[in-house]
Amino acid sequence: MYLLFLGLVWGTAFMFNKIAVQSIPPMTIAASRISLGALVVWIILRHRKLQLPSDLKSWAYIGLVGILGTAFPFMLVSWGVKYQNAGTAAICMSLIPLNTFVLAHFLTHDEKMSWMKLAGLLCGIVGILILFIDATLLEGSGLLPILGFLAFLLTGFFYSLSGVMIRHFKNKNPLVAATVMLICSSLAIWPLAMAVDQPWAVTPDAAGVWSIIFLGIMATGTATIVLVHLTHLAGATFVSYNTYLVPIVGVFSGYFWLDEPLKETTFASILFVLVGIYLTERWKPTAKKR
């Protein structure tokens, strides 16, 4: 049930971003949802009587992870969906495990390349190439859709980089770390939103406001709490299975509510990406007996 919740919430988040960006600038969307999410997580933190870190070093490192893994990605996604479909964003986000695998190969000592994982990576690349050609080159609509697509890919990179950096957290309660990440991200992004978007001059419509409320309370705050709880219950491997749900939910929510087209190339891209994820996550080398 928790896994299904995460898949539904994260999968539909791209649709709500698409709706919100019609009347609200991208940075303001990102700043607002991060602030709402930080408030939700902080309330739960206080309810559990947990304390935030007291040392500057923890705030600096966890805050940096939050900015790289929350502030930058949320800004990029909100900007990218102005020029690309929500379903396209969802498929690109499913590349996160493949990005993480590549980064972990170079940044860690215990997760190295294997032939099967390399085959999975190549499958993922083929899937994204199919999607890129269909979403940009075949449409022939100029530079902005290409930049929007690249923004999605860069978003996945930042998510993966922060995921690898989180592994270096030591003796940190996940809920405490999530709260620090969201607080620091909010503090970092609001000055940019104020300077670039001038949010006080924005006149959002009702759909945009409700979309931000969903993104902040559900897709950011509540989903973070559920993620922490589910990780403790079932482990990180089980949680990673939501990667298979997000692109499917994202594509079909865009189709049903935003009238985005369903194409053969879309399903081909999803198939290649999901097979790539399966190969990289399931075929892990077994430890040698001594």
Rank of each mutant, 00 (worst) to 15 (best):
I44A: 15
I44N: 13
R46E: 07
R48N: 14
R48P: 04
L50K: 15
L50Y: 08
Q51W: 02
Q51D: 13
P53N: 11
P53M: 11
S54N: 09
L56S: 07
W59V: 01
W59T: 01
A60W: 12
A60S: 10
Y61C: 03
L64T: 13
L64I: 09
V65H: 04
V65A: 14
V65M: 13
G66R: 00
I67E: 00
L68I: 15
G69Q: 05
G69P: 04
G69K: 02
A71G: 08
P73Y: 03
F74V: 01
F74R: 00
M75K: 02
M75F: 15
L76Q: 14
V77P: 07
W79H: 10
G80L: 06
G80W: 01
V81L: 06
V81C: 07
V81H: 08
Y83V: 06
Q84W: 07
Q84G: 05
A86K: 07
A90M: 06
M93C: 13
M93Q: 13
I96D: 10
P97I: 03
L98H: 12
N99E: 10
T100Y: 07
F101G: 03
F101E: 03
L103W: 08
A104Y: 08
H105Y: 12
H105S: 14
F106L: 10
L107A: 10
T108A: 06
T108N: 11
D110S: 13
E111Y: 11
E111I: 03
M113A: 08
W115N: 14
W115Y: 05
M116K: 10
K117M: 08
K117W: 04
L118Y: 04
A119W: 00
L122E: 14
C123H: 09
C123A: 13
C123F: 15
G124R: 01
G127E: 05
I128S: 12
I128K: 11
I130D: 03
I130C: 07
L131P: 01
D134R: 12
A135L: 04
L137H: 06
G142Q: 07
L143R: 04
L144A: 14
P145I: 00
P145F: 10
I146V: 14
I146K: 04
F149I: 01
L153V: 13
L154S: 15
L154W: 09
L154K: 05
T155W: 02
T155K: 03
F157R: 02
F158I: 01
Y159P: 00
S160Y: 05
S160E: 08
L161N: 00
L161M: 07
L161T: 00
S162D: 08
G163S: 15
G163N: 14
G163Q: 10
I166Y: 06
R167P: 03
R167C: 06
K170G: 02
N171I: 00
K172M: 14
K172H: 12
K172I: 05
L175F: 09
L175V: 08
V176L: 09
A177W: 15
A178F: 09
